[in-house]
Simulated scan of single mutants.
Amino acid sequence: MSLNISQRNSVLQKMAILVDQYRETIIKENIKDMEAYAGEDLAMRDRLKVDQSKIDGMIAALRQLASQEDPIGVERFRFTHDNGMQVYNKTASFGTVLIIYESRPDVTIEAAGIAFKSGNKILLKGGKESLNSNLEIVKLWHQALSDYDIPADWVEYLNYNRNETQAFLEKPTQKVDLIVPRGGERLIAFVKEHATCPVIVSGRGNNFVYVHNEADKALALENIINGKTNKISACNAVDKVLIDTNLPNKKDFVQELITNLTNHNVEILGDKHVSKFNDVKPIPDEDIWQEEFLDYKIVLGETENTPEAISKINTYSGGHSAVIITKNQEAADTFMAEVDCAAVYHNASTRFTDGFQLGLGGELAISTDKLHQRGPIGLQHLVTNKWYIHGNGQIR
């Protein structure tokens, strides 16, 4: 059974109404999850919390999805064969998409909504820390589906423990065409190890800012502070800063950056050059350049030039996002061409690596793989393709 675009849009519109109508119930269930969470992970706690603002975001995402064009059946290619056959390539749904995620109840709305709009059945496996919130939202999905006489199995919640999840990944008890893990490196590694069908990896951040020797220093300060402190739980947050050795008045810039970061309660670690400043701890070893923090923590270091900065980023970053701050267009072009990340920026914040911000109207995930889509995966990317060939008796 497939759903036409009118059915899919009707369910999404109904979900927006229901989420608004039951916002207090969702928040009440989320409070249970928040009170039960005993961990000290600030990023996890931030992602887990549902407040009025997050509810507003869920509703906006659903309404926007309902207003977008159907991603299914879009013609990508056409060809008339010498023998008269008419050949078309069109987008098609995957079939069934399993989304495995940690802590974020809004994924139960936004990621599921994108997958549903793309014509897929949805299997949701959320973390135990957000179980009450997730189950309440799934109830609303089922109500919205029921209102249009659509079977509830179009959105199904898998309330599995770790062993049950592993068993399902290794030998699914129902059809699964694609798996999208949303969470930390351990979750992603777990899914990749055990999954027996394609996986889109939403990888780690560990994003870099390179302050070139021709940087606008005020712009650099604002960019780094925004990237680090705007939302520490986001995969597009900044973790590492490389400062060109030849930056004019470098010492004053570094001191001002340290002061600003300290005022935002950010723990600062530095290489052998930057650790000489007050309020900066020396890095324990080089491995820290590879670490994603998701916390009020940052590493500052010096670099000799643009090629060295590019090399360091390509060695240690998660392949997510990287920025160059410079007035030199040629240096920016070189950096953006040679840095191996899904999103590269010139004088703008890594915090824009987000489906909504980059014009996709939301995202299922931010992929650091190069197949089949890199960076934010929006509605138009969560499709495969299918060939349609029309003939009148041709044989080969």
Rank of each mutant, 00 (worst) to 15 (best):
E24F: 15
Y22V: 06
E75Q: 14
A16R: 13
M44N: 13
Q68G: 10
L62N: 03
D82W: 11
M58R: 01
Y37S: 04
Q13E: 12
Y37N: 00
L65V: 04
K49F: 09
D20M: 07
L48I: 10
S53W: 06
Q68T: 06
E75D: 07
E24M: 12
A66H: 01
D33P: 05
S67H: 15
D56F: 08
L48F: 07
M34R: 08
L62I: 10
A38E: 14
Q64R: 08
D82L: 14
L65E: 01
R45M: 12
D82G: 15
M44H: 10
L62S: 03
P71A: 04
A38R: 15
T80M: 13
L12N: 09
K14N: 08
N9M: 13
L62H: 02
V50D: 00
A60L: 11
F79D: 04
Q13D: 09
E24R: 10
M34C: 06
R76W: 08
M58N: 09
A66W: 01
M44F: 07
D70M: 05
E29I: 08
L65H: 02
I31Y: 11
V50F: 07
I72T: 05
M58F: 13
A60G: 07
E75F: 07
D82S: 15
M15T: 07
N9Q: 15
A66G: 02
G39T: 05
I72Y: 03
A66Q: 01
K32Y: 10
D51F: 02
R78Q: 12
I31G: 04
A60E: 12
A16N: 04
L48E: 02
R76F: 12
G39M: 09
D46E: 12
D70R: 03
E35Q: 13
M44S: 13
I26K: 01
G73A: 05
D33N: 11
D56P: 07
K54G: 03
V11N: 00
Q13H: 06
A16H: 11
N9V: 08
E35V: 15
L12W: 01
D51E: 02
R63F: 05
